[in-house]
């Protein structure tokens, strides 16, 4: 028995060969890879799930404003909205819950709380946002939720091997974009989608995030990261809906990854986690930097500075 896979196509072949859902192939892949028993692998993932849940609870019960003051208030507001007007939400109650859990995770992260980076810290709100909301909606068990986390991880493995999960290397498409692809596949499996449908959901989600830049205000993982996580969680649910309805991605997932890698190299380094362009150089961003006494080091935002290689165009 061999559960190795490097691409979505290989993963799909394994699900067919062994008549297994994605999460089971991923679980067995990990058992082989790290020489652990099924129970050990499940326990390790459970611990990560526990950290996600605790972080959300903490943030809802004891909201914390980040040091910069830019984040920490959104969780409370969406929580109140959910309590008082759950039927008012344009995105429905599940969408509202997805935003709440994503915001709580992202705001907890911004205030240096304890989180599970999944796949990264800046994008850590999306997977819990989508999956915890879907668990309630579809009345899934904790075991099903755990399985969904394995499915998400499997998609993440393919991205890490063939493209990148680093915002500094690929822009935000590599972080939030990857998280939406992972969550889209996982939620689709949780609601009974076939492995093909899961991969279409992942491809549909990621395609919509291609080209997304990483230009955080003051170099902090707050603006736009926190609220972007909430919005990304909602549209991940929509990507899953498309796939479950039978809509296919015209471009297969593996080729979407090739595109992401290519686009990442074309994005100027000023828009790849250096805070030298985009939202990070707006008047509002500059006034925040001034107020907080932050200097983006080596940065001459008007022209080349020579010290950070941000101005040297990439080879493509």
């Amino acid at each position: 028995m061999n559960y190795q896979f490097h691409t979505a196509e290989e993963l799909l072949t394994l699900t067919k060969k062994y008549a297994m859902p994605i999460h089971e192939v991923v679980l067995r892949h990990e058992m082989d890879f790290s020489h652990m028993t099924e129970e050990q692998v499940r326990e390790r993932m459970k611990k990560r799930m526990g950290v996600m849940k605790d972080g959300i609870l903490q943030m809802r019960e004891y909201p914390k404003i980040s040091v910069s003051g830019m984040s920490g208030k959104a969780t409370e507001k969406i929580d109140a909205f959910l309590r008082h007007h759950p039927h008012d939400a344009a995105v429905g109650e599940t969408g509202l819950r997805a935003m709440l859990y994503a915001l709580a995770t992202a705001e907890n992260n911004a205030s240096m709380g304890c989180i599970t980076a999944f796949p990264t810290a800046g994008s850590s709100g999306i997977i819990p946002g989508v999956l915890f909301a879907a668990q309630e909606k579809y009345m899934a068990s904790d075991d099903q939720l755990l399985n969904a986390l394995f499915t998400a991880s499997g998609i993440g493995l393919i991205i890490a091997e063939n493209a990148t999960l680093s915002g500094a290397e690929g822009g935000c498409q590599a972080e939030v974009g990857s998280a939406t692809a992972m969550a889209a596949a996982a939620v689709s499996e949780m609601r009974g989608g076939s492995p093909e449908q899961c991969l279409h959901a992942a491809a549909l989600a990621l395609k919509n995030m291609l080209g997304l830049t990483c230009d955080p205000v003051g170099g902090m993982v707050e603006v736009p990261c926190v609220k972007r996580s909430a919005l990304a969680a909602v549209y991940t649910l929509a990507a899953s809906d498309l796939a479950i309805a039978g809509i296919e991605s015209f471009i297969p997932f593996d080729q979407v990854l090739e595109a992401m890698e290519h686009i990442g190299r074309l994005i100027s380094p000023k828009l790849r986690e250096t805070s030298l362009g985009g939202l990070a150089v707006t008047a509002t961003a500059r006034s925040v930097e001034e107020k907080l006494g932050i200097t983006i080091n080596g940065a001459n935002k008007e022209g080349p500075c020579g010290s950070c290689a941000a101005c040297i165009p990439n080879e493509v």
């Binding site: 991923v26 790290s34 990560r48 240096m112 599970t116 980076a117 991880s153 499997g154």
Partner: peptide, 14 residues
């Protein structure tokens, strides 16, 4: 997969 689902960490950036 625990390089992807993890680490458990203090924020804000992986």
């Amino acid at each position: 997969i625990f390089d992807i689902a993890g680490p458990i960490m203090i924020g804000p950036s992986s």
